[in-house]
Amino acid sequence: MAVGTHDGEPVMEAAAGLDDLARVAGAIRRAVESVVEGKASAVRLALTVLLAEGHLLIEDVPGVGKTLLAKALARSVDCSVRRVQFTPDLLPSDITGVSAYDQELREFEFKPGPVFANIVVGDEINRASPKTQSALLECMEERQVTVDGTTYPLEPPFMVVATQNPVEMEGTYPLPEAQRDRFTARISMGYPDPAAELEMLDVHGGRSPLDGLAPVADAADVRRLISVVRGTHVAPSVRQYAIDLVTATRNHPDLRLGASPRATLHLVRAARAYAALDERDYVLPDDLQDLAVPVLAHRLLPTAEARMERRRPEHVVADLVKRLPVPAAGK
């Protein structure tokens, strides 16, 4: 288990509105992209989830930069950051914290776990036992920790960035549906293209790229941006479109389990952030279309038939997006 903290100066003064958001978000994105090369869409999705007050699951094979992305994001924002390396022997209390008896004060004192941070990086989350994994559940959804009957709130912003290896890898416990549902989006990194890989060798061959990364925003900035994002307009027709999209997953013959109402909520929230990152104060169906696969696919369970025929939920969602008409005028 490794835990790290970063403290720094706030880079920007508070400013309202989209311009501010664009500036701050742009700075964060540039900072992260200077470390994670050639992964603009992944970086943008990570930022979206941050601004949508959600949690991010990064799934891919080892060594493609999952942790690097999580760390870079964490380090770009000057706030409390903890990193938890999940291992099979990790205990729930290693995450939430423990109440220890203080000999001097003769009382139990709560020692906060690594979850008490603005950004929690959970590395290889599916290597821990289900019991430990589920310890994260309450924290992620309720944004609070209950230990020995006492509830401790978590300070906003609170974001869990978890990385996991594909479930087929050795020594993994697949995340339960309930826990997957709590992640706003799942992204995968993919291998970098040859040019980006070459540049990575050139630039970062000698030292860790994270070393040179200075924070460009702080927790207060992020809170402010989140409030801007909340004001993004979602037209009734666009809301209906989101509901249609989610409902379609529930009726699809290839899916055993469709997306939950929480998924709808996450989808619209993420779309708001996505639109705001595009400097728009209204959400487009395009935002929902772009986000449908990352936000919905990891929550869906394919039927055995579909699994045998290798029709993955990602494909199902992409197909639905292609088929569902966007809300037109007059509706």
């Binding site: 529930r250 009726n251 055993r256 389990l257 055995a304 038939e305």
Partner: peptide
């Protein structure tokens, strides 16, 4: 025309054929 039956228990939201 694949026969549409099988071991899958339709969960919430899954439609009867």
């Amino acid at each position: 025309f694949a026969p549409r039956f099988g071991g899958d228990v339709p969960l919430a939201g899954a439609d009867e054929p």
